[in-house]
Every structure is written in structure tokens, then in C-alpha cells.
């Protein structure tokens, strides 16, 4: 780092630093006076202009043809870089209680695939519900998409059962966006809690989610809340969870996670839990200019 601590011959060395100069402050003063003249009198502005001209010329001569420097001699100031805290703890990993863990878990990205699959699976029960309840597959689509359709104040059932392209578009956006996100969330979190991924992700989470939505739906989307059939809603949520779970389960498993502690399952990056690089000198690192 600092090589002052190295003994010896650098004492007489000097370093070139930019020379102090008054021209910037004169130029700045001139600019301000020029502006101040507008609120006081023209004379001030003229004075400011003179200062600006002088400042510009002076500055110009500072940097051209050569930037002016001053030599500053380097003082020897030994700098010791040390810390009293010499020992670095490691995350303590106790492998004993991990016997009950499953042998394998899944990579994070599998969650996205699961989310997409689950999102497709959800459509089944939802459309089925629409057909059975209102004889229209657009019914559930409009219930979801109606949240964003502006002119729906108090739609009738017949209106909801008809086809509306805005509503379809909005429903697709909401549905696909949410499904992928939830899948991603599953993918990130399930490897941390790997004991019963299907139970957690396929049943418990949908039930919890449905419960939360049940209590809030009246304010999020009253049109949906008035007409929703919660049992069907729950069925489609569970369909999502289970399909997502199955798709994830069919992904290639990451085999080495067998004996990993919780910290490792969280993907924590810390010495002792990741491979150290043998050598990575700056010469290997290219910087983008």
C-alpha cells in the first residue's frame, strides 16, 4: 500500500502537485458579479465581465502550454497498517443435526420454470370454474383483469362473462408477472427450507396466500371479491403450488447439498463456505475504459 514504511532512500523524493492559483476564484467572482448586476446595476455586471476576462486569461495561462506544478517533498511518515483484531472467526458449522435433511435440493432458477408451469396449471381450474359457474371462460379472466379496466364501476355479471381484450391483456400481464415472481421466490427460499418442499410450497403457501387475499380482496378488487368463489380460488392456487413443486422436483438436483448447514443453504458467501481463489492478481482484471 504505502511504501513510506520501506526504509531508505525516498526521503529526498518530491511529488508534483498542481500549483495553487487564484484565477479560478477570480473567474467565479466575476461570474457571480455578472449575475448580481442583473439585480443591482449594470456597472456591477461590467465589473464582473472584467473579472471573468481576467480570470479566463489567467487560468488559460495556468494550463497552457504546460500545466503549472509545484514540487512537494515527501515527508517520511511511517504508517503501520495493523489491526488488534488479528483473528477472523468463521461461521461455525455443526454438521450433526443435519442428518434429517433431504439428500438433494434444487437450483434457484428452477423456481422460474416452476412458476411458469404453475401459472399454466392455474389456468385450468380457473377456466373450469368459469365454465361451470357462468358458462364463460372469460369470466375469471375479466375478474382478474377488471382491476385495471377503467370504466368498470359496477359491472353486471353478463358484462363480466363477455370478452374484453383490455381485460384479457391486463389479466395476462398480472397473471404471468405474479406467477414468475412467486416461482422465483419459491426457487430462492425452498432450498433454505428443504424438509417438505411440496407441502410447504404446494399446500401451505397457497393456503396462507389465499387467506391473506381473502381478508384484503374487498379493498384490492371489490368486483372480484363480490363474485369470487374462494374454494375454486384455493384449488387453483394449490394447482399452482403443486405443479410448480413437481416441475421443480423434476429439475436436476444439486447433489452436493447433502450435508450443508442452514447458512450454506441460504447461499451465504463467506470464507470457509466458498472456495478461495489461488491467486487473482490485478493483472488479470481488466477494467472497462
Amino acid at each position: 500500500m504505502t511504501t513510506e514504511s520501506q526504509p531508505g532512500d525516498r526521503q529526498t523524493a518530491t511529488i508534483q502537485m498542481p500549483a495553487p492559483t487564484a484565477w479560478p476564484i477570480i473567474l467565479a467572482f466575476g461570474c457571480t458579479l455578472a449575475a448580481a448586476g442583473l439585480v443591482t446595476s449594470a456597472g456591477i455586471s461590467i465589473l464582473g465581465g472584467v473579472f471573468m476576462l481576467a480570470g479566463s486569461i489567467g487560468w488559460f495561462r495556468q494550463v497552457l502550454p504546460h500545466e503549472q506544478h509545484e514540487e512537494i517533498s515527501v515527508a517520511v511518515q511511517p504508517v503501520a497498517i495493523a489491526s488488534a483484531r488479528a483473528l477472523v472467526d468463521r461461521i461455525r458449522l455443526s454438521p450433526e443435526h443435519r442428518a434429517r435433511l433431504p439428500v438433494e435440493t434444487y437450483p434457484v432458477v428452477s423456481g422460474i420454470k416452476g412458476g411458469i408451469a404453475g401459472g399454466i396449471a392455474m389456468i385450468g381450474p380457473a377456466l373450469l370454474y368459469g365454465l361451470i359457474a357462468q358458462h364463460s371462460i372469460w369470466y375469471p379472466v375479466n375478474l382478474l383483469g377488471g382491476a385495471g379496466v377503467a370504466h368498470w364501476q359496477n359491472p353486471t355479471t353478463a358484462e363480466i362473462a363477455a370478452f374484453h381484450w383490455q381485460s384479457l391483456f391486463i389479466a395476462i400481464v398480472i397473471h404471468s408477472f405474479t406467477c414468475v415472481l412467486v416461482g422465483l421466490l419459491y426457487g430462492a427460499m425452498l432450498p433454505m427450507l428443504p424438509r417438505h418442499p411440496i407441502l410447504l410450497g404446494g399446500v401451505l403457501a397457497p393456503v396462507l396466500w389465499t387467506g391473506i387475499l381473502h381478508s384484503f380482496m374487498g379493498i384490492i378488487n371489490p368486483a372480484l371479491a363480490d363474485r369470487i368463489s374462494w374454494s375454486w380460488f384455493l384449488v387453483s392456487q394449490v394447482a399452482y403450488g403443486i405443479t410448480a413443486g413437481i416441475v421443480v422436483a423434476r429439475q436436476e438436483r444439486v447433489p452436493t447439498d447433502q450435508s450443508l448447514p442452514f447458512a450454506a443453504r441460504m447461499g451465504i458467501e463467506a470464507p470457509g463456505m466458498m472456495h478461495s481463489r489461488a491467486d487473482a492478481g490485478p493483472s488479470r482484471d481488466k477494467d472497462k475504459p
Binding site: 477472523v88 461461521i91 412467486v182 422465483l184 421466490l185 430462492a188 427460499m189 458467501e269
Partner: peptide
């Protein structure tokens, strides 16, 4: 105890992903 640094942790993709998605 003034001699020990705690374990150094640089990050965790999964956890960060979780608290981005939620």
C-alpha cells in the same frame, strides 16, 4: 474480546433474491 473479527459474509444470492421478490 478485542482480538476477533466476526465471520465475514459477502452476500447471499438466494436471500437477496427473496427480499427483492417479496
Amino acid at each position: 474480546d478485542a482480538e476477533h473479527e466476526p465471520p465475514q459474509i459477502y452476500g447471499s444470492t438466494q436471500v437477496e433474491l427473496a427480499w427483492t421478490v417479496i
